[in-house]
Amino acid sequence: MNYHWNWGIFWDISPDGAHSYLQTLLLGTTWTLATAFFAWCLALLFGSIIGVIRTTPNAWLVRLGNAYVELFRNIPLLVQMFLWYFVLPEVVPQAIGTWLKQQPNASFYTAVVALGFYTSARVAEQVRAGILSLAQGQRLAALALGLTLPQAYGFVLLPMAYRIMLPPLTSELLNIIKNSSVALTIGLMELTARARSMQEFSFQVFEAFTAATVIYIVINIAVTFAMRALERRTAVSGFIGASPAAAH
């Protein structure tokens, strides 16, 4: 292979004059993690709300929830990023649009929102499935005990559902970290973008991509281990004996 390998490139100073290439990649990693973290919070919040309302007895709420999920699931993430970044500021009143566009780190906020909503639809599916996997008797028992519907969800159904859902949620968490790379199309300098820019400045294509790949794998393994530990601690053995208070 007639390619000039140079693994020492990581210690060379990048054109910004202050950081080595390795440091720029690590800087990108923090952006990747920050984007994924905030988007994940958003996704959990909205995903839970939508997931819950899809299991309520109200047909209109269920329809609304279904529409939400279909909307965010059937448009490619990249297109959703563009809608938030390029289209939204143009269709709101001009003053708001200008304000939106002049935010420092606008691509970061946009990426968090786009990724958060996109993932929330997938989380909503998991939450719904988690709740539906519980025996119908639990809901009925809670209601029979005189709990209101919100109380039944808050004290009985959700604490159980979340613990059952942890494994699929783990894979959504891993997805959101990977999907944050799509934000390079709206100018976010996250890990993949940093690797690309390192490639452009140093011409060491494969070293740059290898480093990014290794960092992604490390993140993946770390998150997987952390979540496994959490799963073990919160495991619901046969659904019986779980104390709802433990979820707090």
Partner: peptide
């Protein structure tokens, strides 16, 4: 596990640049 740990965007870049070398090999 490798493919599932890495973003598709990064893989698209990888393959776009790497496939000709794989072909050569």
């Amino acid at each position: 596990n490798l493919m599932r740990s890495v973003p598709l965007v990064l893989m698209i870049f990888w393959f776009y640049f790497l496939v000709p070398y794989i072909g050569q090999w």
